[in-house]
Design a protein around this nucleic acid. Structure first.
Lengths: 208, 208
DNA sequence: GGATGTGAAAGTGTTCACAGCC
DNA sequence: GGCTGTGAACACTTTCACATCC
């Protein structure tokens, strides 16, 4: 049962949740680790091991009840709750983020969009009115925000991350092309297509 | 010297390259692993170990010549070359991708944008004219494309990935919310902010 | 029979610590 | 003195293989 759960395991849980949601949608009721594994490119043993960190969810000889397991994973991840987010930066990228409805739909609604450029403050994007970056702390506190989304230029990103942490943010979704050193209490995930491409380029380059 | 290089190491090289480029921009000439590590949240020992897979680039007592090391890493990753890419899907996300100039600037130019929706074929986005998805293989061959970028809905993504592989694509940058099982000769990287958020939600949820 | 859950084994990746060099 | 490069030690992750249960 529950010991300290490896970070890699936590990163795979969302993939399980998504696959289970898909199967449920397709009216499947039960799935075994042997059938789920190939769908995700993960070995059946790994799926079973991963789930064993949190409990015993399957039935021997049968597999996992999809609806039940999905509910359990959603609860483990906290996806049964809403996690309001604040967006920093409403340039081109920030606007794309603000008008993407996937965040809202998946329980991660943007509740504020902040900018320091005065010419942008007061503008509407999506269903938000752009607010002054200076009000960050106030907004984070008032709306009980734990997640910050960074869509500012690389040059500004380090300062913004510092400010977010000072304001009490505990998780950062970072679209700026930078690396950072944070206290382990603050989690960060980088959305960085260039870095992704560069690591694939290595493999392409090898073949020549 | 060079043995088989762990995949994690290859994924860190782009971060080293970016940091070195930044330092070079700031007119720094030399850096030690002890100074570079904290910038990236990576231990100095790891940086040295990573680089040791490819050769000996530093000077004892001094550190690394930034310009030289950057050049070496760029060469290892193949960033001294251009890697043309083909985009599949020109919906909202596809359009954002097509008009983002970072790909072009970093040596990953989009050379074609494909769609199967006839109403979109012929439209201009960025500096491209949307072409028929049916011509995928032809375009990949003619323009010697090795990288495909997927910006289609989840429901279509599996088929598109199959088609890309059949057309000879070796690397996939996937923006669709799916997981896949591919032969190890084909590399894939997922850009998936929801999955990133969900794994952070776990840590937020734990504290409650 | 067919699948889970899990210790033990194998395999990877990271850190240590120090000889060697500038 | 200061820093690299690297075997060896350690830590973490995955896979195996099997007892257990439906």
């Amino acid at each position: 049962m529950e010991q300290s759960v490896p970070e890699v395991v936590i990163r795979r849980l969302p993939l399980y949740a998504r696959a289970l949601a898909f199967l449920l949608e397709a009216d499947r009721a039960v799935i075994s680790s042997f059938d789920l594994g190939p769908m995700l490119g993960i070995t059946p043993a790994q799926i079973r091991k991963d789930l064993s960190y949190f409990g015993e969810f399957g039935k021997q000889g049968t597999g996992y009840d999809i609806s039940f397991l999905l509910g359990e994973i959603n609860q483990i991840l906290g996806l049964d709750k809403n996690w309001p987010m604040v967006l920093i930066g409403v340039g081109k990228l920030g606007q794309a983020i603000a008008t993407y409805d996937g965040f809202q739909n998946q329980g991660f609604p943007l509740v504020a969009a902040l900018e320091s450029d005065p010419s942008k403050i007061g503008q509407s994007i999506g269903n938000l009115v752009v607010q002054d970056y200076k009000d960050l702390s106030k907004i984070v506190e008032e709306k009980n925000v734990k997640i910050g989304v960074i869509a500012v230029p690389a040059t500004a990103a380090h300062q913004v991350i510092k400010d977010l942490v000072d304001a009490g943010i505990e998780s950062v979704l970072n679209y700026a092309p930078i690396a950072v050193n944070l206290p382990p209490t603050v989690k960060i995930r980088h959305i960085d297509p260039i870095v992704a491409l560069q690591s694939m380029a290595y493999h392409l380059n090898k073949r020549i």
